[in-house]
């Protein structure tokens, strides 16, 4: 197994040069801010204690202001913000290098109301919510939206980017150490915005290639009786195929996540559930109880149907 890093969600352990550049900027700006705050707080407290009215004190001198002083505390902040501006520009290029016009994206991510679709350029792998990448190199991602505005955010790997319908965006992600990185949709997108999470699984090139090869495989037709029954339900008797895609079958829709290798994912429903047999059944039995508002209806399946479907889906490794 790969070295599974603690799936942290912190900004402060960047794992890419891009995220690192932002961190660096944040540290510098943060220190400046804390110093300014310390200065202001000190002055306020000093004045408050030193110049408290003491009994019997007369009226203080009336000072109307001095021009030089005013110029002083105008110019000093100007110099500071110019400095901040300069380091901001420097960081901008490091954190978000402009892609060459003809750079093809490595990956096209399409945000949907409350899940992520991922299509790799070459070879053409399609998957959802859990995105595998090779470590150690910058990868260009094209980001789109199928409905409302969403936002891609995996703090350790780089910047946020909005997914806006009618306005595709490009940005870079990179992971230097193998591991699982947690991210989430950061732009409010409706009922289940809270449960629109991302996992990025970074693997060394060789393992990544292996994963890719595996994703390209078309699942075999299930043999076991239950699973075969489930497949029939999925493809013919129920409407599953009108929303989902399973490679090598008539199911080709992208209203819901691609299920070709759903059983090999760690979570279900964009990070809402761990992918276990019991949870899969729970989801199928009533998605609306798990993720109220999600775009998969409750089909009021019988327990048998749930078992059959689960058996089928579990073959989709």
């Amino acid at each position: 197994m790969q070295n599974v890093a603690m799936p942290t969600t912190r900004l402060f352990s960047p794992d890419s040069p891009q995220a690192g550049a932002i961190n660096h900027l944040f540290l510098i700006v943060g220190v400046i801010m804390i110093l300014i705050l310390a200065l202001v707080t000190f002055l306020v407290f000093y004045a408050a204690f030193r110049y408290r009215r003491r009994p019997g004190e007369g009226e203080p001198p009336q000072l109307f202001g001095k021009k030089n002083v005013e110029i002083g505390w105008t110019v000093a902040p100007i110099l500071l913000v110019i400095f901040i501006f300069v380091i901001t520009l420097r960081t901008m290029h490091r954190a978000d290098p402009a892609p060459a016009a003809d750079d093809p994206p490595f990956l096209v991510v399409t945000a949907h109301q409350w899940w992520w679709e991922a299509q790799y350029a070459e070879p053409h792998v399609i998957t959802a919510n859990e995105i595998h990448i090779p470590t150690g190199k910058p990868l260009l991602v094209e980001l789109k939206s199928a409905d409302v505005i969403h936002d891609w955010w995996v703090p350790q790997l780089g910047r946020k980017m909005d997914a806006i319908p009618g306005h595709p965006n490009d940005f870079w992600i990179q992971a230097d150490t193998p591991g699982t990185y947690l991210g989430r949709c950061a732009e409010y997108c409706g009922a289940e915005h809270a449960w629109m999470r991302i996992r990025v699984i970074a693997q060394p090139q060789a393992q990544f290639a292996q994963w890719e090869q595996h994703q390209l495989e078309v699942p075999a037709k299930p043999r076991a009786e239950e699973a075969a029954q489930g497949e029939k339900l999925f493809q013919k008797q129920l409407t599953c195929a009108s929303c989902h895609r399973v490679a090598g079958t008539p199911a080709k829709a992208d209203i819901g996540p691609d299920l070709t290798h759903v059983a090999s994912r760690e979570t279900l429903a964009a990070g809402r559930l761990k992918n276990t047999s019991a949870n899969l059944r729970k989801w199928l039995a009533n998605p609306q109880a798990i993720k109220p508002g999600a775009n998969m209806p409750n089909f009021q399946l019988t327990e048998n149907q749930v078992d059959d479907l689960a058996a089928y889906l579990e073959t989709l490794k």
């Binding site: 900004l11 932002i22 944040f26 700006v29 801010m33 300014i36 901040i84 980017m161 950061a186």
Partner: peptide
Amino acid sequence: FLVMFTIGGLSGVSFAAFPIDWQVTDT
């Protein structure tokens, strides 16, 4: 007010250094 507002104003400035905003916006 003097101290509390300054804290808020300074965090506002950190957004304006926009690569920082690319991380912390909408959090």
